[in-house]
Computed example of a mutant assay.
Amino acid sequence: MLKSYRRIALIEGISYLVLLFIAMPLKYGFDYPHPVKYVGWVHGVLFVAYVALLLVCWAQYKWSILRVSGFFIASLVPFVPFIVEKRLEKEYGKV
């Protein structure tokens, strides 16, 4: 389960960056809203998967509420999901 969570953390982080730095500028700078619609939808699905897997890992690995809260907040800040993934790799090794 941890392997899936770490992968989703990376993919969700990438989708967030694409949404913020590519799709949103296209929408507001060039009046081309289609990328936000599709990238936003994909990012939303990935975010739900991230949260679901976070809850599963919370139960399975008996993480503290502080850690789970931190990982949730990390998903809301650009670039931080990559730090979370590296932290988990350092702690649990390559899964």
Rank of each mutant, 00 (worst) to 15 (best):
A52W: 09
Y38D: 01
G70N: 07
H34T: 14
V80I: 15
L2G: 14
E12M: 07
G93M: 10
V77G: 01
L10S: 05
P78G: 10
V95S: 10
L26R: 07
M1D: 06
L17E: 02
A9T: 14
A74K: 12
A49E: 00
K62H: 09
Y61F: 10
G40I: 06
F47S: 08
E91R: 09
G93D: 04
G40S: 06
A74G: 04
F72N: 04
F21L: 12
G70M: 12
V39G: 01
E12C: 06
S15A: 09
L19A: 00
L66W: 10
L76V: 11
P81C: 09
R6F: 00
V77A: 02
K37R: 09
G29N: 07
V45A: 15
P25F: 06
G40T: 08
F30N: 11
P35W: 00
R87F: 01
V48M: 13
V51M: 13
Y28H: 12
Y32G: 00
A59R: 14
Y61E: 11
I83M: 13
P35K: 01
P81I: 06
R67T: 15
E12H: 04
L17M: 12
P78L: 11
I73P: 04
S69V: 15
V84F: 08
L53A: 10
L19K: 01
L26W: 13
V68Y: 05
I22V: 15
Y32H: 05
G29Q: 12
V77D: 07
L2D: 08
G44M: 08
P33L: 01
V68I: 14
H43R: 04
V48L: 15
R6P: 02
L19R: 00
F72S: 02
R67N: 08
D31F: 10
S4A: 14
L66D: 12
V51R: 07
P33R: 00
H34D: 11
V39C: 03
H43I: 00
L66P: 00
R6V: 10
F79D: 09
Y16G: 08
V56W: 05
I11S: 13
I8A: 12
S75F: 11
S64K: 09
